[in-house]
Simulated scan of single mutants.
Amino acid sequence: MELSSVVCICILLSVTLVVAPVSGTELTSNTTEWVWEGESVSLDCTTQVENGTFLWKVNGDSLPASDRYYISKNEANTNSTLIISPIFRNDTGSFICEVSNTTVNETSNAVNISVAKPPDSLSIGCSAASLTGGVQLTCSWIGGDPAADIELSFNGTIDKGKNEVNRSVNLDNDVQQPEFICQGNQVGKTSKCNITLERPLSTSHDNNAVTSATEGENIKLTVSLTSQNSLTPEYAWVRLSTDTVNITSDGKYKVESSSSGSTLHISSATGSESGTYECRARNIIGTTTFKFNVEVKSKGSGGLSGGAIAGIVIGVLAGVALIGVGVFFLVKKLK
């Protein structure tokens, strides 16, 4: 049997894989993508290229001349720093640095910087304004561009919005959380404030004190609030008796109230005005009752007045004088 020749031709294919060189030049920043207008930004370019020349670019073009741009490098030419201070909104852009020598040209990664207009205040504001029958809570951080994200947290509920968030709370609401919290976030910049609301308080008031007056005098009963965040309460004056009587400004009585307190004026007091009075101050957190004990004396009670005493003294002296005159004439007659 004749074997046929088998010719085996082997072809060796050489495949060359081309890999793009990894840049040894890196650009970093001291800030996140967003920065507030007026702040300073530092960009740091580090390279492995020896004896390289640095070229800074923004949005693909060479960095324009500006007295707000400060460029420096180290002695070994391995690092260059760009400081922009203050930074303006027209500085928004994509920054890179290029490093080259006679044999190598490398481009860093890009660092994107966006410049925002900060809010009018650097801190978010909390406020509580009294309304008829309640209060309006406000969280405000306005004026920024882009607008700030706002959260208002009170009594277990969160309201969200842009720039400013308001919530009206009625006196009849059941408030379990007296602290109200504002939180703001504008381009990663955050701010927080809080107010712990209080029911009306007065550290100077004595519920056991007695106010005394004489018939015909005017009486003034005053509550002075000392709590810092009690809000403007609603005041109700009553007189305690067999039937509780509500007091309003009418004739003999006059009520004057403000955010810091309330006063009841009683004109030309009589004995019938004696008794216990209450001022009930109420806000969304709660009600505080302030008591006043009033005692009105008749004009003939409580000792003699200065005029009465003077009259008695004059009468006594006159009587003594008359006795002296009588004795004088009696002695003369006996002679």
Results as ranks from 00 to 15, higher is better:
L27I: 07
T28A: 10
T28H: 06
T28N: 10
S29D: 02
S29E: 04
N30I: 02
T31E: 05
E33D: 04
W34F: 15
V35G: 02
V35L: 04
V35Q: 06
E37P: 00
E37K: 07
G38C: 09
E39V: 00
E39P: 00
S40Y: 00
V41G: 01
V41W: 03
V41Q: 03
S42Q: 12
S42D: 05
S42E: 13
S42P: 00
L43W: 02
L43Y: 08
L43I: 03
T46V: 12
T46H: 05
T46N: 10
Q48W: 02
Q48S: 14
V49W: 04
V49N: 04
V49A: 06
V49E: 03
E50K: 08
E50Y: 04
N51E: 08
N51Y: 05
N51I: 00
G52S: 08
G52E: 03
T53M: 07
T53Q: 05
T53P: 00
F54S: 01
F54P: 03
F54D: 02
V58R: 11
V58F: 01
V58E: 03
G60W: 03
D61G: 04
D61P: 01
S62K: 09
S62I: 08
S62V: 08
S62G: 07
S62A: 11
L63I: 12
L63W: 09
L63S: 11
L63Y: 09
L63G: 07
P64K: 05
P64Y: 08
S66Q: 09
S66R: 09
S66L: 10
D67T: 14
R68K: 14
Y69L: 10
Y70A: 13
I71S: 05
I71E: 08
I71Y: 10
S72C: 06
S72P: 04
S72N: 14
K73A: 05
N74E: 06
N74K: 05
E75R: 09
E75I: 07
E75S: 13
A76C: 05
A76T: 13
A76L: 13
A76G: 09
N77S: 13
N77I: 00
N77C: 06
N77G: 09
T78L: 03
N79D: 09
N79E: 14
S80T: 11
T81W: 09
T81Q: 15
L82N: 06
I83M: 14
I84M: 11
I84D: 04
I84T: 06
I84Q: 05
I84C: 08
S85R: 09
I87A: 03
F88P: 02
F88H: 15
F88E: 15
F88L: 15
F88R: 14
F88W: 12
R89G: 06
R89M: 14
N90Y: 15
N90A: 13
D91G: 07
D91M: 08
D91A: 09
T92P: 14
T92A: 11
G93C: 13
G93N: 13
G93R: 12
S94I: 08
S94R: 14
